[in-house]
Design a protein around this nucleic acid. Structure first.
Length: 466
RNA sequence: GCCCGAAUAGCUCAGCUGGUUAGAGCACUUGACUGUUAAUCAGGGGGUCGUAGGUUCGAGUCCUACUUCGGGCGCCA
């Protein structure tokens, strides 16, 4: 008896009349007085559940099948046949149903065949994957992860596993989570009364990473095309639907490349991902379009078809200055673009994805390459309709003297960046890269409004349940 | 971190200007009916109205604090 997934059973590749076994969890059970019950069974392999038809001739019909409620688990064996009912291709005429686990209190089982609020489902994060929505999000998450690895692999990239524990303050990219094994109630002190981190586990201060970029640059200047993709940690007290304290970030880095090469890569990269989900997850996308975001599919299709607009930061400022719209934050050359500015550019002015390039040097990180004009750096942000900034990247400063100057300008001591400076001493080449917040991308694709629904167990300021 | 809003049954919500025993749908349960499919119809059980104070003859309703959740902004991915 072949054990098959619901996806295989519904997929049409198995011949009619096949004897199969499926295993999963009950979504709904409907009884018919004709002497049979219909059990919709889901195993996560695809959006649709399969209907298992259980006749009252089954030996455990009364004390097994009739006790099944939403959430119960079972193993069903039977014949795969074209369904007599509507809305499904195949069903299973059960010859045996083994009830594996009943729901001990059906009345309080949180997942019902009805609409739940996202807030409620966050409180039952361990059970929400059993809903249509989170099942779909979970499959999408996997599909996009694989699409990213697949695209970059096909383009000749190597996946570099940069460290999660770091001892450098990286880019000064915000607050970091301290990692320590010191006894907080009895901290070792030095002569001046400061905490003596030489007694700590690593012999110095350590933190969780806020970016793998600096580490991956070293591998870029050897392997040519690399990327890092893993969990990232930010300790900022951000209280928004777009921030997590723990999220996943993918950061490709390419050698012998400038900002335009970088933008080209970002465009191909995003389009590949969207094309992949449209092809491989049509069932889940149809659900998002139906229940979550009506234009979920059409906007991805538009994204795939439209060439990205590219605009200089300086020109973008002019566009905003000449806009009819009143902005809460004033626009002037030298200020960073606010969310409202980005949305105006993308959604109203251009109406398609935009790459804003070459920002004022004072508002961007020290490692970004100083342009010949002396007042901008080769930074880029990819803005998308409906979300705003989806990708941030830059060509890196590859000239040692300029890098040192920039570090001092930002109050950083070049001496503490010895290995990073070495990359500019030994065969330095122009190189560039970008970072993409994975959960933000997933939100966009699925039409989710809150990033806490894009990761199985969200961690955010003041919130780390499960 | 700043500003705003919300909290009533397991879930989603209604409950008007404070006034007897707090309602509906779903879920659960009983029955009817049915190759059903978020089935349908009829009945039933289920609520210290987030917590603690206060105002009042009387508070789900008004006030204060706290807690939790959500939204907007900032920081960012």
């Amino acid at each position: 008896m072949a054990v098959v997934s619901v996806k295989q059973a519904l997929g049409g590749s198995l011949p009619e009349g096949s004897e199969v076994t499926v295993r999963g969890w009950v979504r709904t059970r409907r009884d018919s007085k004709a002497g049979l019950s219909f059990v919709n069974l889901s195993d996560g392999s695809c959006f649709d559940p399969i209907q298992v038809v259980a006749a009252n001739t089954l030996s455990n019909y009364e004390d097994g099948v009739k006790k099944l409620t939403a959430g119960a688990s079972l193993i069903a064996t039977g014949t795969l046949v074209p369904s007599q009912g509507k809305g499904q291709g195949f069903e299973i005429q059960a010859t045996d149903i083994e009830v594996v686990g009943l729901v001990d209190d059906p009345e309080t089982y949180p997942i019902q065949p009805k609409a739940h609020s996202m807030e409620f489902l966050r409180e039952v994060a361990h059970l929400r994957p059993r809903t249509n929505l989170f099942g779909a999000v979970t499959r999408m998450r996997h599909t996009i992860m694989m699409a990213i690895h697949g695209f970059l692999t096909a383009e000749g990239f190597s996946w570099i596993n940069t460290p999660i524990i770091t001892t450098s303050d990286a880019e000064g990219a915000g607050d970091m989570f301290r990692l320590s094994t010191l006894d907080l109630a009895n901290l070792p002190r030095d002569d001046k009364g400061a905490v003596d981190f030489s007694k700590d586990f690593f012999g110095r201060e350590a933190f969780l990473t806020v970016s793998g970029q600096l580490n991956v640059e070293a591998y870029c200047l050897a392997m040519s095309k690399v990327y890092t993709f893993g969990p990232t940690f930010r300790a900022e007290n951000s209280n928004t639907p777009r921030h997590l304290a723990e999220f996943w970030m993918v950061e490709p880095e390419i050698a012998f490349a400038d900002l335009n090469d970088n933008a080209d890569l970002a465009e191909r990269f995003l389009k590949h991902i969207f094309r992949t989900v449209l092809e491989e997850r049509a069932d889940d996308m149809a659900f998002f379009a139906q229940r979550v975001q009506p234009d979920a599919i059409t906007r991805l299709e538009a994204f795939v078809d439209a060439p990205f607009e590219r605009v200089e930061y300086t020109d973008a400022i002019e566009i905003l200055k000449n806009a009819d719209k009143k902005f809460e934050y004033a626009v002037d050359w030298g200020v960073d673009l606010q969310t409202e500015h980005e949305r105006y550019l993308v959604e109203q002015h251009f109406g398609r994805p935009v790459v804003v390039m070459n920002y004022p040097e004072a508002i961007k990180a020290f490692y970004m390459r100083l342009n010949d004009d002396g007042r901008t750096v080769a930074a880029m942000d990819v803005l998308a309709p409906g979300i705003g900034e989806i990708i941030g990247g830059a060509q890196r400063e590859d000239r040692l003297d300029v890098l040192d100057r920039r570090m001092r300008q930002f109050g950083l001591d070049p001496a503490t960046y010895g290995w990073y400076r070495d990359l500019r001493r030994y065969g330095s080449v122009p190189h560039a890269g970008f970072g993409l917040g994975f959960e933000r991308l997933l939100c966009y694709v699925c039409g989710l409004a809150n990033i806490r629904d894009a990761i199985p167990y969200p961690r955010a300021a003041g919130s780390a349940e499960f």
